[in-house]
Design a protein around this nucleic acid. Structure first.
Length: 566
RNA sequence: CGGGGUGUAGCGCAGCCUGGUAGCGCAUCGGCUUUGGGAGCCGAGGGCCGGAGGUUCGAAUCCUCUCGCCCCGACCA
């Protein structure tokens, strides 16, 4: 491609609205332009990268035995009513009506459509197992789109759906996809981690997420420094920590704590550690208020709470509402003599002589003990794990926390959709049997952004070779010099003929501009044709990461570059 | 959806308080010079000041309403 004939609108200035590196660099490198909140046009350079990701994904899905299809982006509302998700999905589902007033939505995912296809077309167990995938534009009307391509509303996704006769078959399909995902992210040149994940609203038995490790990641993932345990923070659990259950029971004490409402204030005022103080958090689950108890220094995990209570969602009411439901000022909530149902974090089962709110404004209690003072509640895991806690799987391991960008997700769905939508085949006994589904997503466009988050420096992008828009960029230093121009052009043609993807910067610009833009675009190799080296009959070949710089005779340049690129 | 901010040339911004010819930098176009890390000089084009109402002799500026975008909190590839 010739730079002078291409739309690669690079920006010298930092885009003010872009908050993360990938968004800034994608705008500056002329890869994308915004059309509205969370929707983007992919310009030629960006599209080349997107296509490379697609190609890798497609190859590995095909290799894993999945069959490519392309389903409609626009889906009838009826299908969603059948699965029950028309009501469940909420505002994220973009809905509209056609001229006949029939309901439609723009697909955020395709379980219904594929289930409908399979129930019509697959009749026999002999056609199983089957796995269908597509690479398609999805739309999710995100509450707050941000970070450019990382969290757009419209995005490109690969979604695959497996169908098996039983859960044993599903296990095999799942493992096959899991392995394919590892290959995909490896081939993209990404540092990533597969983690155990919460199954969330889609429901189902088991689930793993694939995260690209990057500081700007919105997700927190936890892993063990010794074994291969890794999980999303929403799901991660810690091993047993130290307990203090040998302490003698002290007698209950009421302490005045006027105006002391926060954990920090109360611990300072009473001169106790936050581990000693039990905090009581009022939440609502399915419209019912209840108290959750946690050690003072821990973070509540609402997803775990929802899972423990068996409700879809647990919410934190605003302070006024909470005070009204609890019948006591915020800051003084406690389990003793509370009229509310109580659920306590697992860690508190060995707590002794702890402090907590007295359910009376201006008072806390100390040396509280289970059974004697408060009926022993149910203990379940309710909190986020912290870095440094013991690993739940191995002896001696400790947990680390990292930031990650979720780029893939594999799910064992079970029969949730196949049951609701009647996806059945005849088994070898001639009996109808409901199929077991798995679903597997990859954020294709998000991979592009995540790659940049992981591979950039002050000057611009450093593409992993597999995803680079071009293998090599040839810089023609003096386009008005006929000899240099001819040499650059000849090299460009040779490279093209050798099947090497090359961008020729033949613009009538000063060298400084070309260097800056080449840094920004981030092709792995850069070749300088012209200037002082040209007079010596050589071209300079530089790696974008600055680790290699070679001078090669012009006549040998093509062969040499081909060797580097392969 | 709640809270905060912001819409003026392709991009980044000033002007608004205190109403009176719409400006600056970059980019674009033409010319000359320059040419190994975002050039210099000369000249030129480009604006329904987000939109609609209102106040006023007169509105980018004041008032009301609206729409877009961005940022902070609950979801997801």
């Amino acid at each position: 491609m010739r730079f002078s004939r291409s739309l690669i609108p690079t920006l010298k200035e930092e885009p003010v609205d872009a908050q993360v590196v990938s968004h800034r660099l994608m705008l500056r490198a002329g890869m994308i332009r915004s059309l509205g909140a969370g929707i983007y046009t992919w310009l030629p350079l960006g599209l080349r990268v997107l296509r490379k990701v697609e190609k890798i994904v497609r190859q590995e899905m095909d290799r894993a035995g999945a069959q490519e299809v392309l389903m409609p982006a626009v889906q009838p509302g009826e299908l969603w009513q059948e699965s029950g998700r028309w009501e469940q999905y909420g505002k994220e589902l973009l809905r509209f009506v056609d001229r006949h007033e029939r309901q439609f939505c723009f697909g955020p995912t395709h379980e219904e459509v594929i289930a409908d296809l399979v129930r019509r077309e697959i009749r026999s167990y002999r056609q199983l197992p089957a796995n269908f995938y597509q690479i398609q534009t999805k739309f999710r009307d995100e509450i707050r789109p941000r970070f450019g391509i990382m969290r757009g509303r419209e995005f490109l996704m690969k979604d695959a759906y497996s169908f098996d006769l039983d859960v044993t078959g599903l296990d095999v399909s799942y493992q096959t996809m899991y392995a394919a995902y590892q290959r995909i992210f490896q081939r993209c040149g990404l540092a990533f981690r597969a983690v155990e994940a919460d199954t969330g609203s889609i429901g189902g038995a088991s689930s793993h997420e694939f995260h690209v490790l990057a500081e700007s990641g919105e997700d927190v993932i936890v892993s063990c420094d010794q074994c291969d345990y890794a999980a999303n923070l929403e799901k991660a659990v810690a091993g047993e920590g130290a307990t203090h259950d040998t302490e003698p029971l002290l007698s209950l004490q009421r302490s005045a704590t006027p105006g002391q409402k926060s954990i920090e204030a109360v611990t300072r005022f009473l001169n106790i550690t936050a581990q000693r103080l039990v905090k009581s958090i009022l939440v609502e689950a399915a419209g019912q208020p209840l108290l959750l108890l946690l050690r003072g220094d821990r973070e509540l995990n609402l997803i775990k709470a929802a899972a423990a209570l068996g409700v879809p969602q647990v919410t934190l009411p605003d302070p006024e509402r909470a005070a009204r439901l609890a019948n006591v000022a915020m800051g003084y909530l406690g389990p003793m003599n509370s009229h509310l149902p109580i659920l306590a974090d697992w860690e508190l089962r060995t707590a002794r002589n702890f402090a907590c709110g007295a359910n009376e404004e201006g008072w806390h209690l100390q040396h509280v003990n289970w059974e004697r003072d408060v009926p022993t509640p149910t203990f379940v895991d309710l909190r986020n794990v912290e870095a440094g806690e013991p690993c739940p799987r191995c002896a001696g391991g400790h947990l680390l926390r990292h930031q990650g960008i979720e780029v893939g997700h594999v799910f064992k769905l079970g029969d949730k959709y196949s049951q609701a939508m009647g996806v059945r085949v005849l088994n070898d006994q001639g009996v109808e049997q409901t199929l077991i589904m798995g679903c597997y997503g990859i954020g294709v466009s998000r991979i592009v952004a995540a790659t940049i988050e992981q591979h950039h420096d002050q000057k611009g992008i450093l593409w992993p070779p597999a995803l680079a828009p071009f293998h090599v960029e040839v810089l023609l230093l003096n386009p008005r010099d006929n000899a240099e121009g001819a040499a650059a052009d000849a090299l460009y043609q040779q490279l093209l003929a050798a099947g090497i993807e090359v961008l020729l910067d033949d613009r009538d610009e000063r060298v400084g501009v070309k260097f800056k833009d080449a840094d920004l675009l981030g092709c792995p190799w850069r070749v300088l044709v012209g200037g002082r080296s040209f007079k010596e009959g050589v071209v300079e070949i530089q790696s974008r990461d600055g680790t290699r710089l070679e001078r090669v005779a012009i006549a040998d340049a093509m062969e040499h570059i081909a060797g580097l690129v392969r």
